[in-house]
């Protein structure tokens, strides 16, 4: 099962390494990982996407909690949550293709950020599977470059993760 784990970390040098180390040392996989400061300068927030059986996820959560720099964490996938990822994609857009590419971007609520004579750069935001969907809708040979931010997420409702 795919899990999205949100972590509040002490904003210390090396804290990110400790998390990354833990995953490589214990052979857990990381699908994506994002980290950035929060409104509280002493904390960073990390969002980590991983996959594993219930037993493995239980261990991952326990092992993360055991790290001294981890202040709090929550497995977003345990409840209602909002998941977002941002993708920038540069595609070929020659004369004959431009209308079609435009239409496709619209379907996925993408925004065209940059245009040249023969390329479009499109921004798409959404849950990861929506981005996957967009990628598979575009002709593979037309893709010049893809960059994805990795998943971030937040719980629905009043529940909030704070120190």
């Amino acid at each position: 099962m795919r899990h999205i784990i949100s972590i509040l970390l002490e904003n210390e040098a090396g804290a990110l390494c400790r998390v990354a180390n833990l995953f490589s040392a214990r052979g857990y996989n990381i699908e994506s990982l994002t980290v950035a400061p929060t409104e509280d300068a002493s904390l960073s927030r990390m969002t980590l996407v991983t996959r594993g059986s219930d037993d493995i996820i239980e261990q991952i959560v326990k092992q993360l909690n055991k790290l001294i720099d981890v202040v709090k964490l929550s497995d977003l996938t345990e409840g209602g949550h909002i998941e977002r990822e941002l993708m920038l994609i540069k595609v070929k857009a020659h004369d004959g293709q431009r209308a079609e590419m435009h239409r496709l971007a619209e379907i996925f609520r993408g925004r065209i950020l940059d245009v040249t004579d023969n390329t479009f750069t499109i921004e798409v935001t959404g849950a990861s599977d929506k981005l996957d969907g967009f990628l598979s809708a575009v002709n593979h040979d037309d893709i010049l470059e893809v960059v994805r931010s990795g998943v971030t997420g937040i719980a629905r409702g009043q529940k909030a993760l704070h120190a």
Partner: peptide, 11 residues
């Protein structure tokens, strides 16, 4: 005392 020791190898 270590939660991560529990159910790590044996449920």
């Amino acid at each position: 005392i270590d939660p991560s020791s529990i159910s790590k190898n044996v449920k």
